[in-house]
Amino acid sequence: MFRSTRDRFLSLTLHGLAAVSGLIVVLVLAFVLQESSPVLSRVMLSRFLTDGSWHPAADAAEGAFNLLPIVVGTLLSSAGAVVLATPLGILSAVFIQFYAPLHLARWYRRMIELLAGIPSVVFGLWGLVVLVPLIARIHPPGQSLFTGIVILTLMILPTVALLSNAAMAAVPREIVSGCAALGLSRRTTAFLIIIPAAKSGLTTAAILGLVRAIGETMAVVMVCGNVVRMPGSLFDPIRTLTSTIALEMSYARGVHRSSLFFCGLVLLLVVTGLIAVAEIVSRRQLHGPV
């Protein structure tokens, strides 16, 4: 199949590199499984859904391990962030590609790249010191699902915007030129031609954004309130899986520690599930009626 030994060498090397990259997640999974095995062997799985509350610091018999509000909190906050960040990100990409003058586009892109590098602790600090008091004035306590969504949106926006931008840039130039030749406006070109053509890239961008939102820790700890309770409204505090790990790991021992690793495992399962769903959806779109 390959003409030269050099090509065979290249292919082999690349396969090796890819295999290592793929293997990392297996290692992580094995590590998390091993660390969470104590709680899996001593606490019935159903108790993670039916226990009265989340108080794992006591031993396996007395502790309470209800993860449901935490999982719901995680899903709500990250879904909210993606719902806001995806349109903002795609519109930003359209802005850069089709609307803004060259210089403005360049500066805006650079700004988004900067946004990508602001540490989550700085987002959290800003959220806690600036945003939370503002929201507390409208609806105490201020630390809430809403604040979390706002901060998370800002945090995942660069991922979504830059990847969307790359996906749109990837649409063959001929199509754009064709549109121009047909006399289509930039608006029509962007929304009716380019966005549908870049669909798979845009989906990737949204998924990576979602996954990033789910995995986010430090900022969420500071602005979400962290109470383990089913949120009744947008202004109720929520707890996420990652903040549970971050808040409790430093003093956790025995079953408690291991139940925190179980949180990590649940998180990985949630992520895997979402990716599977996204894949099914995009495949249906690919094969369905155009």
Binding site: I24, R212, G215, T217, I245, A246, G264, L268, V271
Partner: peptide, 10 residues
């Protein structure tokens, strides 16, 4: 994709 979702603390 799964790896991208592993929280940083893990």
């Amino acid at each position: 994709d799964v790896l991208a979702g592993v929280p940083s603390i893990v």
